[in-house]
Simulated assay, not measured.
Amino acid sequence: MAPSTIPAIRLRRFGLELRRLREAAGMSASAAATALGTDRTNISNIEAGRYGISEERVRRLAAIYECNDPQLVDTLAAMTGGGRRGGWWDEYRGKIPHGLLDISEIEHYAVHLRTLQTTYLPGLFQTEDYARAMFDLIVPKLPRLDVELRVAHRLARQSVITGESPVRYTGIIHEAALRMQFGGPAVARDQLRHLLEEGERDNVTLRVIPFANGGFPMAGDSILYAVAADRHFDTVHMDSPAGPLFFDLPTQLENFRARLDLVEQVALTAEASADFIRTVAKET
């Protein structure tokens, strides 16, 4: 199979965990290739996320590396061929930046999503008009087709919240994001009403940090922490001017979890947050 030039994030994580197992075993790529009956190039391509391997080979590699974590081995085995099985986001491949597809992928496989938004509202709850107003502000200005593709993709992402097996979602929103009127007052009011409606879902918890509550860790950042079924595969996404950034090293993940826990201590309760959003909506 020809290697992919842009690895999907799940396949990249698959390869990264295999590399970590090999390195923990103190084994070179050449030695691993010899033990598996292949060549070093194949091991390198697998670890770089360029393509997957069969479940049988994953389990053989885990045995070669003397991995004693059966849950991790089972998770890796379940991911085999992940880069070959497409998700709904593949419809947008080659049409929007691949980093946006990676976000869709980590959301799709998450069991819990934790977010912090300080300047705009969570993408999983944005209305069409609000999302379009945001994408219209990108510099240099995007062609109309590119804007509409990104809007359609953002709306499609919301199926992780509204679908048949909705993911658990905990969102922290700063008052600044509630008061930013992307698209003007009418769009902003509709957006806040929609946010209130979505916040009533059993799987959704929305909490607000008012200006009056002062500073908090990661103020100014937009963060998505995707909790995986196996914590080895947790992923953090942050926005940047250069595009999405992803973090997955164990120490990084531990630090992000700790910071989000601290941020939640600053936020209002879900009930008080809903009242706060209603107040902002009336004032908009």
Rank of each mutant, 00 (worst) to 15 (best):
F247Q: 01
S159D: 12
E128P: 01
V73Y: 08
G163F: 06
E47G: 02
E66F: 14
R168N: 09
H232C: 03
G37D: 04
P97S: 02
M180A: 15
S104R: 00
Q265K: 15
D39K: 13
G52T: 02
I277N: 00
E23I: 01
R19L: 02
G49D: 01
P250K: 09
P7G: 05
V227Y: 08
H174W: 10
G99L: 09
G87L: 03
I138L: 08
A242M: 14
Q181I: 07
A242S: 15
E198M: 13
A133L: 04
F247H: 03
A62W: 01
I106A: 03
L113N: 07
S4W: 07
I103T: 02
L116G: 01
T279V: 05
R157C: 00
P250T: 12
A63G: 13
P70Q: 14
W89P: 00
T38G: 02
H174C: 10
M1H: 12
E283N: 10
C67V: 07
G94W: 08
R13N: 06
A272T: 02
R114N: 13
R257F: 02
G81A: 04
D129G: 02
I277D: 00
I103Y: 08
D39T: 14
P7C: 11
Y51K: 09
D39S: 06
R59S: 07
Y51D: 05
R40H: 14
L245S: 08
R50F: 06
S240D: 08
R20Y: 10
S222T: 15
E128F: 07
P210C: 10
L145Q: 15
L178H: 01
A270V: 06
I223V: 14
R168Y: 08
E128C: 07
F182P: 00
H108C: 08
R207W: 00
V73M: 06
S165T: 10
P241N: 06
L249E: 15
A229M: 07
L76H: 08
E91V: 10
A156Q: 12
G83A: 05
V139P: 04
L113S: 09
I96G: 03
T279C: 04
Q265L: 15
L262S: 14
V167K: 12
M1F: 08
I64F: 13
A131L: 06
A24K: 10
A32W: 07
I223P: 00
L137F: 06
G94L: 06
G163L: 03
D74K: 09
K141E: 15
Y169W: 13
G15P: 00
H194W: 04
P97T: 01
T284Q: 07
E254T: 14
S104D: 10
H232R: 12
G199V: 03
L11V: 02
A78W: 09
L178N: 00
S159K: 15
G184W: 12
E264A: 11
L121T: 03
M134N: 03
T80P: 09
R40W: 12
W89C: 04
I43W: 05
E105H: 09
G184M: 05
L18H: 07
L145H: 15
Y51V: 05
A212G: 10
R144L: 03
V111K: 15
R12P: 00
